[in-house]
């Protein structure tokens, strides 16, 4: 293919500017010595100091990170297992499973959120009714038991929702790797005396790894960037960072939030640079080795 001319380069630059302009604004105004986000009032680090003293924001940050990490970890393990299970199924049940699996990915977030919220409310109510009924039964009274299975939405329902929308992405990322897998490899390991678990761990898992890592990254990105589903399933007690921002936006967002997002952005940027550098170094080493042999 032909290389890009000056015009296509300019186009790329403009679209990237469009994508990054709001982020630049946030970063610049996190150092602004004024409550306004439009007028420059001089350089300050006040918002960073205030951020460290803002309990609500830090708690929301903690919830966000905790739910994203836990959901990603659970989804990666469960999704990999499910993908292996799916690929061993016959065609018809597999297609049925894959169709249901794709529902959370294709459905609008708001529908996923609303439907899970209705389920949680419904289940909480049903369980509360059930425990109320249990408490009136003779044996519960005679055994002096008091049941309370009812629940409100909170961290657990938030986590369940995140796991539910993360798993499909992991499955979709792992399945192609399973398709490429040579079944003879695992057979060979078994013939050489490996147990099923060892064969899986030493032979199959390394082959699947790129897909699993890919799925993990997508799941984490989806979790940490999610607002809509969390908004409907977290209830009124728990709040993620996005929910905190949404509540703030109705008034005017304090620049502390700018400071926090700048920190998060820098953290992610550093992480990606490190990953990139490592990859580049590995590639160079591989090239040098290839030259030597």
């Amino acid at each position: 293919m032909k290389k890009n001319g000056i015009l296509s380069r300019l186009f790329l630059a403009l679209v990237f500017l469009f994508l990054y302009a709001p982020i630049l604004v946030l970063i610049v105004f996190s150092f602004n010595d004024s409550k306004s986000n439009a007028v420059w009032g001089g350089f300050t680090l006040d918002w960073y100091v205030q951020l460290l003293n803002n309990r609500t924001v830090l708690e929301a940050l903690q919830t966000t990170l905790l739910v994203s990490v836990l959901a990603t970890a659970i989804a990666t393990v469960a999704g990999t297992a499910a993908a292996i299970g799916f690929s061993s199924m016959k065609r018809r049940p597999r297609n049925a499973c894959l169709t249901v699996n794709s529902i959370p990915m294709t459905n609008a977030d708001i529908i996923t959120g609303v439907s899970m919220m209705l389920l949680f409310v419904f289940a909480g109510q049903a369980l509360a009714d059930f425990s109320g009924w249990l408490n009136t039964t003779a044996w519960a009274e005679s055994a002096n038991l008091w049941f309370d299975f009812g629940f409100d939405m909170g961290f657990l329902t938030l986590l369940i929702a995140h796991v539910t929308f993360d798993i499909p992405y992991v499955i979709v990322a792992v399945l192609p790797k399973l398709r490429q897998l040579d079944p003879n490899l695992a057979e060979a390991a078994l013939d050489l005396g490996a147990t099923r678990w060892t064969a899986f761990r030493k032979v199959v898992l390394p082959e699947l790894m790129p897909g699993i890592v890919n799925g993990l990254l997508i799941a984490f990105t989806m979790s940490i960037d999610d607002f809509v589903i969390s908004y409907f399933t977290a209830g009124s007690q728990v709040s993620t960072l996005s929910m905190y921002v949404y509540a703030q936006v109705r008034r005017r967002v304090s620049p502390e939030i700018n400071a926090l997002s700048t920190l998060m952005f820098v953290a992610v940027l550093l992480l990606l640079v490190v990953i990139n550098l490592r990859q580049a170094r590995q590639e160079q080493r591989r090239k040098r080795q290839a030259l030597r042999t």
Binding site: G79, A81, A82, G85, I103, S115, I167
Partner: peptide, 26 residues
């Protein structure tokens, strides 16, 4: 490695948290 039962927990999970919510909406 062929073991379709390893997907059973997730199939159950989907039934409860993907299909059931949509039925509740209906």
């Amino acid at each position: 490695m062929r073991n379709k039962w390893i997907a059973a927990p997730y199939v159950g999970w989907m039934a409860v948290f993907v299909v059931a919510p949509l039925i509740v909406v209906l």
